[in-house]
Design a protein around this nucleic acid. Structure first.
Lengths: 159, 159
DNA sequence: TATTGTTATACTCTATAACTATA
DNA sequence: TATAGTTATAGAGTATAACAATA
């Protein structure tokens, strides 16, 4: 299954210090990890998993908040919610306060699944301990956060 | 253009320490950075940029090596090379040693463009200095590398 | 007039299987 | 028989514009 050919690694050249390139490479690992621990056993894609975790951790969530948190366009989010609803994992209800907006909630089945997933997540991350100490993990998360924050959400007082 | 609505940030919950989630968030930043500095001005996608940089930094490169380095499937890589060749940036030549394989090289136009790009890359990265010190950058790259290496390329002596 | 969410459309990305030509 | 690269196909991801309902 694995390509056994002994091929010379390519030099990275100017790519060496391009964070985006490094992130793309690291993502290959985390995606594979996800597929193995959660994606395949639960037939979930990364965004679907993230969606469930966000719903579990928050009350009174709107699609707008979700598309923000998951960096998905509204149309994409709509499709995602459709799939999850068809699967019986979430419900949508119009808000009483502002009838344009919705409240997205976990169904009972969704809560059961989310609880299970919340346990698997640390297991999945645990596997990385082979390559990353606890301190390194914490540091990595902190640094990724700084990158994510760069030019990110508009500071409160801006136009 | 920016959504001005003051909406409560969602709690991350169990996602808090999922590296894959953090990487996905950080990727949004680096992609935007790329589009602004390189993608739009040069009509290039991230992989196309990376491809050029790899060709510039290495001699005698084969499609197989490229699909490895860029984490693209062979078919995807073929299409990518087709596009770049149509654009007059690369050439493909069958190897004399093993007539199954190819050598991918930059055309003159490709070399000119790549030289220009190699200068832009540090500029792009420089913008991150606002959020990341030099030491933090170095640390981040090192940690991302460890993640990428996890379960990555098969150690030389393995089956 | 602006905003929430939906529909429609199109284009890119990615994975797989089947093919060819070499070895 | 195995490997390098290609072709074909389909599914998933993503962006955009146009729309309905509500504010």
């Amino acid at each position: 299954m694995s390509s056994k050919t002994k091929k010379t690694e390519l030099k990275t050249g100017p790519l060496e210090s391009v964070i985006g390139y490094r992130i793309a490479k690291a993502r290959v690992t985390t995606q594979a990890l996800f597929v193995r621990h959660i994606g395949k056993p639960f037939s979930l894609r990364p965004v679907e998993f993230s969606l469930l975790m966000l719903l579990q951790a928050n009350e009174a969530v709107t699609p707008a908040q979700l598309s923000d948190a998951l960096s998905l366009s509204r149309p994409h989010l709509t499709l995602l919610l459709d799939r999850m609803q068809e699967r019986g994992l979430i419900d949508r209800a119009r808000s009483q306060v502002d009838r344009r907006s919705q409240q997205v909630t976990l169904t009972d089945a969704g809560q059961v699944l989310s609880a299970e997933l919340a346990q698997r997540a640390p297991q999945m991350e645990g596997e990385l301990q082979l390559s990353l100490s606890a301190a390194e993990r914490a540091m990595l998360i902190e640094l990724l956060d700084k990158v994510a924050a760069h030019g990110g959400p508009v500071p409160d007082d801006e136009a």
